[in-house]
Amino acid sequence: MDDELQIKRIISDLEKESEEKLFFFHQGLGAEVHWFFSQAVQALKSELYLPACTSFLCGIEASLRITMAQVETPTRIMQLDASKLLSNRLLKVAYEKNLPIETLAFPNEDDILAKLFESDRLKKVNVEIVEIVRTRHNLCHGNILEFVNTNLGEDFAFFTPECCRELALTLYDISKKWAYELGMFRTSRLKEINKF
């Protein structure tokens, strides 16, 4: 009886691991996107938190940029516009095209849409950047200063990749929601994209 229970537990664990590995592949985002997410999950499982964070962020940005390019020109995209990077402006345009931008909100960021629409009314200096954009800009440009651990005081401040563990887990959750909703958008609204 114990052997049978142990076998069932092993099979269940293997099935769960397989589902986690294949989740992003099954969302219909395309190989040029799902590998960012897949590699991010592998890095997260290996406790490589910085590569996990940056790969999740790059996956989000790539999926947004590619989908927006395909919305504008429903063909196989050979090159992305270098001026259309992850920004409040790009997120606002994507929201207006019905992409599921709300899924990119960080926990406790209930005002993501307000931040996007405020950017039109206020001077650029005063605009509050949505958290996914701010985080991408900081991490992908090497700014990890906000993650320096000062719990023991300024004299004992330190940084290790583990300081980004919570961020990596947050980005994993956001990426799963985003990929699922974006996959639904692509399936229902952009059927012509799926052939590429």
Rank of each mutant, 00 (worst) to 15 (best):
K21G: 05
F23H: 09
N143G: 06
L5G: 09
L57F: 10
A114L: 09
C53I: 02
L167Q: 03
E20H: 09
Y172G: 03
F196P: 00
L171A: 03
H26P: 02
G142W: 15
A82P: 06
E131H: 13
V41H: 03
L57G: 02
K124N: 13
T187Q: 10
N194K: 15
A94G: 08
D155K: 04
G59M: 03
K177R: 13
I77Q: 03
E109A: 10
D155R: 06
L80N: 09
L91C: 06
A114H: 07
S188W: 10
T67D: 03
A43H: 06
E154Y: 13
L167P: 03
H137Q: 14
N98I: 04
F25T: 05
Q79E: 11
I174Q: 05
C163R: 00
N126I: 15
C140K: 02
V148G: 11
K97Q: 12
L48M: 13
V71I: 14
L169D: 06
T54K: 01
E131S: 11
F36D: 00
L167K: 01
F185Y: 12
A43Q: 08
L14F: 13
L44D: 05
L86G: 01
I132Q: 01
Q39E: 15
E96Q: 12
Y49T: 03
K16S: 10
L167H: 01
R134E: 12
E181C: 08
R89S: 06
Y49L: 08
F23K: 14
F25N: 07
D81I: 01
N151G: 11
G30I: 01
Y49N: 05
T150A: 09
V148W: 15
L145G: 08
I144L: 12
I144P: 01
K45C: 12
N126E: 14
E102D: 10
T73L: 09
T103C: 09
L91H: 02
V41A: 03
P74R: 04
Q6N: 07
K177I: 06
T75S: 14
N88Q: 07
D110H: 11
K16P: 00
E17L: 09
H141E: 10
K176G: 01
I7Y: 15
L145W: 14
L113E: 10
S12L: 14
H34M: 06
E4H: 12
L171C: 05
T73G: 07
Q70H: 08
C163S: 08
T170V: 14
S87H: 11
T187F: 15
A105S: 11
T160A: 13
Y172S: 02
E118V: 12
A62R: 08
K84F: 02
L169Y: 08
Q39K: 06
T75R: 14
D13L: 07
K176S: 04
K177D: 10
